[in-house]
């Protein structure tokens, strides 16, 4: 083999072997898990934001009135008042037929019985979702129809939102733990590498090599392993995340589709392996310099 075709001289100083291959696969697994956890977290974050966007300011005015004539009259007055209200962007009465369909699983076909006292419902979207704005609107609504009450969607979707927040925190925790584990693995690998190449390092020191020069060899080695492993693990995780995303989209659920990742999230996920390469390189440098500092 011609010299020019061989690896660069400084790369030959640390002989490669089984350890390198193992390290690459460990990094691939760590990055696979990290990117998946991050995808889960970003999906949960996107779903939470989507829920917030959909539910913030959305409420339903319920008019419970046994007399159908009085109910319909109050409902018309309420609708007119709401549509004229500056705090309301949209007010839409819920079709009684749709309402009957909604309660059909519980009451059967009786829901369409005109003798059944069904409440009148009006879906309302507000410009301001604050408690004060909702309370003010509630006062105006009860002024028009004392029997009316307001149901904020955010209230009954709060457990879902809390679950999403929990998922997000869990994913963030997993990413942090995996980063710590990766750093620890790198430190251990660097120390093992120092031990395995003790002879070469001693020779280098005796020939006038600085600690930084030695550390650079390990940094380069570990950065290379982390890059290869990160590429394998990262690409695999991105493929899995894309597959899961497409399956979620196929569900047709508003919540599931809200978890779909946008391009900024995909870019962030793709950058994660690079961040881990940087982390591994830094951890290797610190570990090697510290260990060498204890020698003469």
């Amino acid at each position: 083999m011609s010299r020019s075709k061989e690896a660069r001289p400084e790369r030959r100083l640390l002989d490669s072997g089984r350890t390198t291959r193992t390290m690459r696969w460990v990094m691939a697994i760590m990055l696979f898990l990290t990117v998946l956890a991050a995808a889960l977290g970003l999906g949960a974050l996107a779903a939470t934001h989507s829920l917030d966007r959909q539910l913030a300011g959305r409420l339903t005015v319920e008019l419970v009135e046994a007399d159908p004539a009085a109910r319909d009259r109050d409902a018309r007055r309420l609708l007119a008042m709401l549509r004229a209200d500056r705090a309301v962007t949209a007010a839409q009465p819920v079709d009684p037929a749709r309402l009957a369909k909604l309660i059909e699983p519980w009451l059967g076909a009786i829901g369409s019985d005109p003798d059944l006292p069904m409440p009148a419902l009006i879906d309302v979207d507000m410009t301001d979702a604050s408690d004060a704005a909702v309370a003010a609107l509630s006062a105006r609504v009860t002024h028009v129809a004392p029997a009316a009450r307001i149901d904020r969607h955010a209230r009954w979707m709060a457990p879902v939102s809390q679950f999403m927040t929990l998922l997000l925190a869990l994913a963030a925790g997993i990413v942090v733990l995996l980063a710590l584990a990766t750093g620890t693995i790198v430190v251990l690998a660097a120390r093992a590498g120092l031990e395995a190449h003790r002879g070469t390092i001693e020779i280098m020191h005796m020939l006038g090599s600085t600690d930084v020069q030695v550390a650079r060899l390990f940094q380069r080695r570990i950065a290379g392993d982390a890059a290869v492993g990160g590429a394998i693990g990262g690409i695999a995780a991105l493929a899995v995340a894309a597959l899961v995303g497409s399956r979620l989209a196929a569900l047709g659920s508003a919540l599931a589709s809200g978890a779909a990742l946008g391009w900024p999230q995909w870019v962030a996920l793709a950058l994660l392996p690079l961040a881990f390469v940087a982390l591994a390189t830094l951890a290797a440098r610190i570990a090697v310099l510290r260990a060498l500092g204890e020698t003469l």
Binding site: P9, E10, G208, S209, T210, D211, V212, Q213, R216
Partner: peptide, 8 residues
């Protein structure tokens, strides 16, 4: 393998 850091 530049000799960075080695004192002259």
């Amino acid at each position: 393998m530049a000799g960075a850091g080695a004192d002259k």
